[in-house]
Design a binder for these strands. Structure first.
Lengths: 120, 120, 120, 120
DNA sequence: GTGGTCTAGACCACT
DNA sequence: GTGGTCTAGACCACA
């Protein structure tokens, strides 16, 4: 079992998020090339179109840029941009819903904190 | 504003969640009948089948039971069951991912807490 | 909980079958009147129309006959007729399917016989 | 004769049972894809949604799994699971009723056995 | 190509 | 009145 794709979200989205996460975490550094579509497709046994779609999203979001004949490269200064963008989106749209649900489920700090330890 | 359906999730799922939320919050009490398929369909201008699908889910989840020819009624004791079910699912599957993302985005307690006040 | 109606078959069918079974088993004897619609409806907390429908079926099947102003009475000689009718229907249409399923599930005589004892 | 649907049970239930039966009998093997919704719909002249409903049931029962964009595939190890599930359900809920009816109709082994030969 | 969702409108069985 | 089923036809997301 190569990669346990979450069956509830499209694979191309998961690929996109994977790249973003790796950039954030510093595993992929700026200026570095992305692995080729066909390489990823072979490795993960996916349809090349699926990888293309993820790479297209990365271009649309100005995270990578195409260098003709060479491939896709992570743009410079992108780590900070992503960090800010994700932070803002998380705080403005996701976090309020999470708080609402925590309240609805009447979860206490005790319920929430210990699980931090359990999850490694 | 009739109902701002989220275009990214099926309406019947949203209807299902709406009912569950309302039971959790006490707006629908146990033993009470759900509004009829036709009524909801007319009110929200939806196809009856869409509502049927949501109501079917509620039956499958043992939240509601059919009384033939009369309609659907919220089962007794279901509020606690839902609360526990949702809590468990939140703590085991959603919350770990949230914590992970908080860490990844290097968000501090200060970032997270003020928004509590804003949303309440 | 007065009567545990099987939720998968219409109540009026179950009422019909109940009467037939009771005649077969001798609990209701020929020439005897059936309890009135409103009495059964009150006792079982059912809609009178439901009982009417069952009684109508009994008339259609020539099992009971109406005596105007008095009610419905079990016809004479009906016990044998029912017995033969049910036997024939069971052997010709139900039993072959049952045998087929027993074969498909590869059930042996040992699987089938002990359960006789368990079911009282 | 295209398909003699039993008018008393929903077609999607009959489709579901057909697939289950075929898996049990080995006509559909594990890991194999089910024919596409459209194909079945065209072949049997049914609405695609009707087939979808049957296929949805198979997914809910963990008999079949979706491979996104590819179709539905029979899960591995499912033949034994179905066999056991069906056996248990037959012995615990259907067979007792059958025995009861056999007793009620006072049917003897002679009545029941010859028909075995006829149906085989 | 795959399955999933929704609409509009009809019919049926049960109570 | 209730929910359940089916049709005919359309659109979408995913691979």
């Amino acid at each position: 079992m190569p990669t346990p794709w979450d069956p509830d979200t499209p694979i191309y989205i998961q690929l996109y998020q994977q790249v973003v996460t790796r950039i954030l975490d510093g595993y992929i550094t700026e200026g570095e090339p992305l692995p080729s579509v066909r390489k990823v497709a072979a490795e993960y046994k996916l349809n090349p179109i699926t990888i293309s779609k993820a790479y297209q999203m990365l271009q649309d979001e100005n995270i990578v840029e195409k260098q003709r004949g060479k491939g896709l490269f992570v743009k410079h200064g992108v780590q900070d941009i992503i960090l800010n963008r994700e932070r803002e989106s998380f705080l403005s749209s996701q976090w309020p819903k999470i708080l609402q649900q925590i309240n609805r489920l009447k979860l206490s700090a005790e319920d929430l904190l210990p699980s931090t330890l359990e999850t490694k």
